[in-house]
């Protein structure tokens, strides 16, 4: 068991740091405070891949590794759209995925928001001229936020969440009157 016990005391979670300047982009508690304040401690996200190259999913999965550990901020990828606040979309929207994508959206209770990740859902990416692609996402759903990149790095995705929180904070006051 020494293999396991050795691991137990190794913590990697850290502030998200900008490569170039070395300064902290996101302080460990900044995003958490936002999530706490705005959404009562939890932001639940449902992901739909509508036709990606799988690199975007790999980066989203990387958010759960010990370096980023997204759940410490209160942000969680959930299994059912019924539990979600946010529909996160990767990929270029293929004809075959259009229906499942829209059905997933329908099944998320309101209020709900769409966040797109990567260049594909915004423009169709390299696949945009294909006979079997019918994106971009904005043709069908209102996109609250877009996270750029091909693929966006985990840091960029976390920054995106933070920006999204700021945005909600403002619109929250307007639409729910609190």
């Amino acid at each position: 068991m020494s293999f396991l016990s050795k691991l137990l005391f190794k913590s990697k979670a850290q502030d998200i740091v900008d490569d170039k300047s070395g300064s902290a982009l996101i302080k460990e508690d900044e995003l958490k405070r936002s999530v706490d304040e705005v959404l009562g401690r939890s932001l639940f996200v449902r992901l739909v891949d509508s036709g990606s190259c799988n690199a975007c999913e790999n980066e989203l999965a990387a958010l759960s590794n010990p370096y980023y550990d997204l759940e410490r901020f209160g942000i969680k990828f959930v299994a059912s759209p019924k539990h979600a606040d946010v529909l996160m979309i990767t990929g270029c929207v293929t004809r075959n995925m259009l229906n499942p994508l829209l059905k997933t959206y329908e099944n998320i209770p309101s209020p709900k928001f769409v966040i797109t990740v990567g260049d594909c859902p915004e423009t169709g990416g390299p696949f945009k001229d294909s006979y079997s692609v019918c994106g971009p996402v904005s043709k069908y759903l209102t996109v609250a936020m877009h996270i750029k990149g091909c693929p966006p790095e985990p840091e960029a995705i976390i920054l995106g969440f933070l920006k999204f929180m700021d945005m909600i904070k403002i619109s929250h006051k307007v639409s729910f009157g609190s």
Binding site: T94, N96, P100, S130, S132, V133
Partner: peptide, 11 residues
């Protein structure tokens, strides 16, 4: 399968 068929060969 083929939900993600993006028609790359044609493109």
């Amino acid at each position: 399968h083929f939900w993600k068929h993006r028609g790359i060969e044609k493109v």
